[in-house]
């Protein structure tokens, strides 16, 4: 899980994270107009539900983050969507933290937004295999970015945490691998089924040739 609870980070890190998150949310809100609100919200709900999916690994299970997918689909609007998701988790499950809301938002959203904005234009130019590869890269790097953000927030808070960071980051490696596979297949799936979601133009089949049967060949069923 990418939640840092209250009580771990130092005050400057909390304030810095809060300011960054506020800036990101502001940008995201400006990018969506009133009509896009339902769409963004339903995707926020989807990603919230998506974080409940788990892949069993040995005795434990891994929950997906879907940060890369969010960035690809929502762009800058990922910031408000993640923030809303975190608020919902706080109320529905009592998860997360209050003071760390900003830091958690940035850790989850920023890597996805950066990767999504960079990778989205490439999707239109490649074949399905290329889309799987781009999706896999975005998925894995987004998890790496989230883990890196957590490590950075901890390291900036106190040098005492530095020796533990390797372990914190290492626990995210299996998740990165799983997200890579899932995001890769997912992006190819979306490009095929609903390309608008990824900003690609919808596939329009060539109009079928209209064949008018000769008049004598029409038989009227009695």
């Amino acid at each position: 899980m990418a939640h840092i609870p209250d009580g771990v980070l130092s005050l400057p890190v909390l304030i810095g994270g809060g300011a960054l998150a506020a800036a990101g949310i502001g940008l995201g809100l400006r990018a969506i107009d009133e009509r896009d609100v339902p769409k963004t919200a339903i995707l926020a709900a989807l990603f919230f539900v998506g974080s409940l999916f788990s892949v069993p690994i040995g005795p434990s299970s891994i929950h997906l983050l879907l940060g890369g997918t969010m960035g690809l689909v929502l762009g800058v609007a990922t910031f408000p969507a993640v923030f809303v998701g975190l608020l919902l988790q706080a109320t529905m499950f009592g998860f997360g933290g209050i003071s760390t809301l900003g830091v958690d938002t940035v850790n989850m959203a920023l890597p996805g937004v950066v990767l999504g904005v960079l990778a989205r234009p490439l999707l239109g130019r490649v074949s399905t295999a290329g889309r799987v590869a781009i999706g896999a890269g975005v998925g894995a790097l987004a998890v790496a970015g989230t883990a890196g953000g957590m490590a950075l927030a901890l390291a900036l808070s106190s040098p005492d945490y530095v020796p533990s960071l390797g372990v914190v980051v290492a626990t995210q490696v299996p998740l990165a691998a799983i997200e890579a596979v899932v995001t890769g297949v997912l992006v190819a799936h979306l490009a095929r089924v609903k390309p608008e979601v990824l900003g690609l133009t919808a596939f329009e089949p060539a109009p079928l040739p209209v064949v008018v049967p000769a008049a004598e060949s029409i038989e009227v069923a009695s």
Partner: peptide, 16 residues
């Protein structure tokens, strides 16, 4: 994992 990806993809398409 492939099934999970299609699962989430389909969920996303329907939600959208």
């Amino acid at each position: 994992l492939r099934t999970l990806a299609h699962f989430i993809g389909q969920l996303l398409v329907r939600a959208f």
